[in-house]
Design a protein around this nucleic acid. Structure first.
Lengths: 182, 182
DNA sequence: GTCTATACGTGGATAGAC
DNA sequence: GTCTATCCACGTATAGAC
């Protein structure tokens, strides 16, 4: 019985995802994850090299894709057209990597900073993205509004927590809001 | 020299505010605060009973006021009028307690949960507020949009970080966006 | 009002048995 | 593949001297 075989790693990821998103990364200890699974901390270390390794396995792809988006945007010329494109790409990231990734990124900004070696933190990354899409001669009001527009994608995913909405519905609302503000 | 007299407490608060908002609450240790001030950890305990005490002294008033707003909203009848009122009150909170409080609340949701004894966490508080202002027969889309509208106040304050904008400008943009979405 | 010294718990991580 | 045992660093907190 308790026939857990090769799915242990998957179970760890699942429990970690649950706890990281509900309580936050720092507030979740390996002890907690292990206990919840009925295994010892050491077992976790068989499957993952570190705690950071676990969270990277959960959100690393998303964060890498986000970095890529930032890098791409930096090569483009600012303007309404670019803003629309960036928003659409962000929405696609949400669809590909799941709402949870976006929720996590918003709620654990300070943690995400160290996930990519030698990388900027979330805030700096966002600043780069903001600068890329904002006209150099924009007023502060315009610049600020643009920032909120981009953030609204993540915020909408975040706000959808506990709401009985389908992925499609959330995606549609996020798109509406982001484009309305941009 | 180094004639620090009764302002030590104020300095602790200042440094803590800086580090809590820039690195996050959990990522900031008392050791770090103490070193930055050139004192020992023990010195902090002369002025504050605990780490939590420090953060409470910084944001406690804001959080209490927010709780009050949630409680008040719960006694009102949902609808567009209430939404407008709630948004205006949130903006006033921002003006009274400073942007930093709102930024902190957004970026440290998981921490804020335990600041008020026996209280709900931020997420639960927000849920209560969301429920209070949303028509019972609203569609999921409408409900979600309303949530984002309320959150947009905090988000705008957050987005203003690093932007050279006056409080009045930020406040005005936040007001525009929140009302536009509500 | 500030310090030294120190205790205590916990969290992350490793070595090595089974 | 999982466990026991253990380590170590850190973070919070206290007692008591100066």
């Amino acid at each position: 019985m308790t026939a857990r075989q090769g799915d242990t790693k998957a179970e760890i990821r699942q429990v970690a995802m649950e706890l990281f998103t509900s309580q936050g990364y720092e507030a979740t200890s390996l002890r907690e994850i292990a206990e919840r699974l009925g295994v010892t901390k050491a077992a976790l270390y068989y499957h993952f090299r570190s705690k950071e390794d676990i969270v990277r396995s959960l959100f690393g792809d998303y964060l890498a894709a986000l970095d890529e988006l930032v890098a791409w945007a930096s090569t483009q010329t600012p303007g309404p057209r670019l803003r629309t494109q960036v928003i659409d790409r962000m929405l696609r990231l949400g669809a590909e990597h799941g709402r949870q990734a976006m929720q996590f990124a918003l709620a654990n900004q300070h943690v995400v900073r160290d996930l990519h070696p030698g990388r900027e933190n979330v805030h700096e990354r966002l600043s780069t993205l903001f600068d890329a899409v904002t006209d150099p001669d924009a007023t502060v009001q315009e610049a600020l509004r643009t920032r909120v527009a981009l953030l609204s994608v993540n915020v909408t995913m975040f706000a959808a927590q506990g709401l009985d909405a389908t992925d499609e519905q959330v995606d549609a609302v996020a798109r509406d809001i982001a484009h309305l503000l941009s």
